[in-house]
């Protein structure tokens, strides 16, 4: 894996981002600012699921109206994140926080998938309840935990404690 990443790191695009005074900060701040657009919006749905926020708003309405916005944020996150990885792949790959972050993203994705394939199918039955059923609350809590972990790992990745 490392030789491939070293090869990527030596490509002109990777060097250009890494050494640019402007490019790297711009990509990096886009990645951070999109937190509001992605994680912040997801958090609103999760907080609704655990029964903490927007308790009078039907769950299905939040899902229909806000999830497309979060999905847009996710695309920006992945593209800017991929560019950041591209700029220093070896450093990211060997970083423990980066690896944990990827696992947490996978878990968050599986949690969302499971939620949409199971409990959300019967949303009509609990759409307007201020306190959704236990399984929906669990899904919301899991999502909040996983995405918080992703943000924490993303931030910690910049520090070289374990390198």
């Amino acid at each position: 894996m490392i030789p491939l990443l070293q090869w990527i790191e030596a490509t002109s695009g990777s060097i250009a981002i890494r050494e640019s005074i402007l490019l790297y900060p711009v990509i990096e701040s886009t990645h951070v600012l999109t937190l509001g657009l992605f994680a912040g919006i997801i958090a609103l749905l999760d907080l609704r699921l655990v029964g903490a926020a927007l308790r009078t708003v039907p769950v299905s309405q939040i899902a229909t109206r806000l999830l497309p916005i979060a999905l847009g944020g996710f695309v920006i996150m992945v593209v800017s994140g991929a560019l950041l990885f591209y700029s220093s792949p070896v450093r990211a790959y060997t970083n423990i926080f980066f690896r944990v972050k990827l696992v947490l993203i996978l878990l968050a994705g599986l949690n969302a998938l499971l939620f949409h394939l199971t409990i959300f199918r019967d949303v009509a039955g609990w759409d307007t309840l201020a306190q959704p059923p236990p399984r929906a609350r669990m899904a919301g809590l899991a999502s909040l935990t996983f995405w918080s972990g992703v943000i924490i790992c993303g931030r910690m990745q910049a520090y070289k404690w374990f390198e």
């Binding site: 912040g40 609103l44 943000i151």
Partner: peptide, 10 residues
């Protein structure tokens, strides 16, 4: 910041 961004956006 993420939470503030989400609420302000909404």
């Amino acid at each position: 910041l993420a939470l503030l961004g989400g609420t302000i956006l909404a």
